[in-house]
Design a protein around this nucleic acid. Structure first.
Length: 487
RNA sequence: GCGACGAUCGUCCAGUUUGGUCUAGGACAUCAGAUUGCCAAUCUGGUAACCCGGGUUCAAAUCCCGGUCGUCGCACCA
């Protein structure tokens, strides 16, 4: 298996991703840039997500704000649940998690959501001091994983969203009305979320600013098995890890065996699976893992993670949570906005439930890179076997040697194709070197203009994975790329 | 956030032990030119780095302190 370090090296050398603000010594951890190649892959990944999930399932896609008011997160529970009590030594400024500290020193098991004054009381009562300098602690504070921002001259309290889905929840009633929604109605969004991670690590795998592609399926909780399109995917084979046992079985079998609770969840897990199949990730190295009650988020009643095996172990790519009506009822309560809707199918007035597929884009990109990376020792080359529709560049136009008559034709071909496809022109160095360079960033096709081109207007197509070469007429190139850029 | 270790061209590494030889060297990559009829060829020339701040010293890539970042472990991952 390719190591994390090897992918990291490739990324730095070839511009997939690299640290943000790296010329400054005070640049914070957990922020990374996509370079030209990485950005192209990311855009194409998102476009594939749209094709295979959003358009396939007639989803509605929105693009919401990244900064949202305090009340949004009071309602969502993030103000309360997303923070840890923290105590700071008044002298040496050492920081401790209050609940852990009290458990370790006084042996008292306080809940994570313990009020600040309660912590202060316990510290006093048991005379707990800083273990490093034996000084007393300052008043208990909260460390919140959300980034707080101040709006306007008064610095009104607001936050960068820690998950994209909250915009979907707060917008739900308007979207449902204007789009003449019928349950189940999936609403999708791709965008950035922000979490003030304590220890961001491993580049794209734990970021403070990251892309999520989320799908919130609003549904009638009484109609979870009334999904006729389940039949389309019932033979999709899923690997499901229930903690005690791992089963590989079709969606239908999983449903029959109660491993999946209903058709709606089965359907969405299956189309998610089929989407990832198309990314080039080795599906034998993936699984859905049922989360235990301890692992589940506070809003989830059923939770499965879609995970992929990488050199760093199993990596969570998609959180699939049945959030019930938690979010809508909370937003309804705090905003005093009625969020019940008429289900036109059953003529019931209900508060919809939500099943979500919360996908981590950056982790997916990393996994695709790792699973696409191949070292071809026989030919002494490194090949990134990206699917053509995910490759940062679809094709490169190369003059065989540096001769004006070949370069002119090659540049013409390049100019004729570059508006329709992601093309690249390279005329420097030996032809073999150029092939090697291209396959390292995953360019699937190289077009070489040679001396035969002058005679019969054909060029060589070289295939990245097999190194095979075929001749094709210049005028047929457009349709060749048209066909080959499709999933 | 804690602890251990580390940080030199785009990448990998030498130089730090024992301060002066370093206006920092090599390899790969890259750029320009020459050459080249298809898989990292060759020749010539070029670009390019001591993480940041402070201190010690006649003198710091090298020693000391602080910060930042990175790797690993713990914790965290709603």
């Amino acid at each position: 298996m390719v190591s994390y370090d090897r992918i990291m090296k490739l990324s730095l050398e070839r511009g997939f991703y690299f640290p943000s603000s790296e010329i400054y010594s005070d640049s914070p951890a957990g922020f990374w840039e996509y370079g030209p190649n990485g950005n192209n892959i990311k855009n194409k990944f998102i476009e594939l997500w749209r094709r295979e999930l959003v358009r396939r399932d007639d989803m509605i896609e929105i693009d919401g704000s990244q900064i949202m008011s305090k009340n949004v997160f009071v309602a969502s529970g993030h103000i309360d649940n997303f923070s840890d009590p923290v105590i700071v030594c008044s002298k040496c400024k050492s920081i401790f998690r209050a609940d852990k500290f009290i458990l370790e020193t006084a042996g008292i098991d306080v809940p994570e959501r313990v009020p600040n004054n309660e912590v202060d009381k316990i510290l006093n009562q048991y005379n707990l001091k800083c273990p490093k300098c034996l000084s007393s602690f300052q008043q208990t504070e909260r460390f919140n994983m959300m980034f707080k921002v101040g709006i306007g001259p008064n610095n009104d309290e607001a936050y960068l969203r820690p998950e994209t889905c909250q915009t979907i929840f707060v917008d739900f009633t308007r979207i449902f009305k204007i789009m003449r929604g019928k349950l189940p109605v999936p609403i999708a969004q791709v965008g950035k979320s922000f979490r003030n991670e304590v220890a961001p690590r491993q580049s794209l795998l734990r970021l403070r600013e990251f892309y999520q592609a989320e799908i919130e399926v609003f549904c009638n909780p009484n109609q979870l098995d009334a999904i006729s399109k389940f039949d389309d995917i019932q033979d999709t084979t899923l690997t499901i890890d229930e903690g005690t046992k791992v089963s590989k079985l079709t969606a239908k079998e999983a449903l029959d065996n109660q491993i999946i609770p209903n058709k709606l969840i089965g359907y969405y897990l299956s189309i998610l699976y089929e989407f990832y199949e198309k990314t080039g990730i080795d599906m034998n190295q993936t699984r859905f893992r049922k989360l235990s009650d301890q692992e589940k988020a506070f809003y989830a009643t059923i939770a499965l993670d879609f995970e992929v095996k990488t050199s760093l172990g199993w990596l969570e790519l998609v959180a699939c949570n049945y959030r019930s009506d938690y979010d809508l009822s909370q937003h309804s309560k705090i905003s005093r906005e009625k969020m019940e809707i008429m289900d036109p199918v059953t003529n019931e007035k209900i508060l919809p439930h939500v099943f979500e597929l919360s996908l981590g884009v950056d982790r997916s990109i990393y996994s695709i890179l790792e699973h696409s990376f191949a070292e071809d020792h026989e030919n002494k080359r490194v090949v990134l076997k990206l699917k053509p529709y995910l490759a940062p560049i679809l094709g490169a136009i190369l003059p065989l040697v540096k001769k004006p008559e070949l370069e002119e034709i090659a540049k013409n071909i390049y100019c004729n194709l570059k508006k329709d496809f992601d093309m690249y022109y390279d005329g420097s160095g030996s032809i073999g070197r150029r092939y090697r360079r291209l396959e390292e960033i995953g360019v699937p096709f190289a077009i070489t203009v040679d001396y035969d081109t002058l005679k019969d207007s054909t060029v060589t197509i070289r295939y990245r994975d097999t190194m095979e070469q075929r001749r094709i007429k210049i005028k047929d190139l457009k349709s060749f790329f048209e066909i080959n850029k499709k999933p």
